[in-house]
Design a binder for these strands. Structure first.
Lengths: 135, 135
DNA sequence: ATAGTTATTGTTATAATATAACATTGTGTA
DNA sequence: TACACAATGTTATATTATAACAATAACTAT
């Protein structure tokens, strides 16, 4: 494959790769400053370097932001290109977060129209409850 | 009605009332420090006074937090007691936010079970798109 | 009515999250 | 090779949120 095509496939830059690797191996959502702390040994020194990589990774769907927690997790759907239809379950005790992949849920929400007939280009859904271990 | 019952109805304290009134009359979601700025003339001087009132108002369902915007709006469902099933539409251009009240949506989500049969006690859903005016 | 309890308030300081602005370097394209 | 655009590096600062502690007000149960 030609190198010129690789960017279009969203090959990651150096900082993006370092930060994605860290998030990907993290068992739970990780916060921006925890990321910063962990990658300082790799030469990433400033918050902005982290936030820029996070913005890009979210944009291309490699990670998602858990809005209620200000934390980031790697996308758990292999097919994810863009973060435009996301759903998560969050345990309110242990804070475990799982990405929900339910065809019927995503179909329902993707097709949802409000009273005015408005259709949406994107959604984010966060469910809260207790996970198996905490119940 | 006896005064001793009034707290159970969530009658608001002074600061809670001041802050609720401001949010309620605001045509769009309002942020904590914008609230602070607006209520300083009423004697509320510190962020913590605002955040404490916000926490309580969210807890009793009088307002909701729009997580993706770090901003607050008054509950638009007259029946709201507790914020445990919330859905909003957000215009990505003008930032107009509307609370969605759809019986079928809330029924679908309230009854949603994931693969493991886990049921949730609470959810928050944010739809993004363009509102009528911005389309 | 009053003692005990809980919710609310006031205050200072600080923590945690996120972006502005500008200079520079790398990468893909024409 | 030159142009355009993406990514990086750096310093400073803006924004959002909580810790800790003291005091006051309101509710509950005698």
């Amino acid at each position: 494959m030609r190198i010129s095509k690789m960017n279009k496939m969203h090959n990651l830059s150096k900082n993006q790769q370092i930060i994605f690797d860290l998030i990907h191996k993290s068992p739970e959502p990780i916060k921006a400053y925890a990321i910063l702390f962990n990658v300082q040994k790799k030469g990433i020194k400033a918050p902005l370097q982290v936030y820029r990589a996070l913005d890009k990774l979210v944009e291309i769907g490699k990670i998602h932001k858990i809005e209620s927690r200000n934390a980031f997790i790697a996308c758990q759907n292999s097919s994810c290109q863009v973060s435009k239809a996301t759903a998560f379950s969050i345990c309110e005790i242990c804070e475990k977060v799982t990405e929900i992949s339910s065809a019927s849920l995503s179909k329902y929400l993707t097709n949802f129209k409000d009273k005015d007939g408005m259709k949406y280009s994107k959604y984010n859904l966060e469910f809260f409850g207790l996970c198996k271990k905490c119940r």
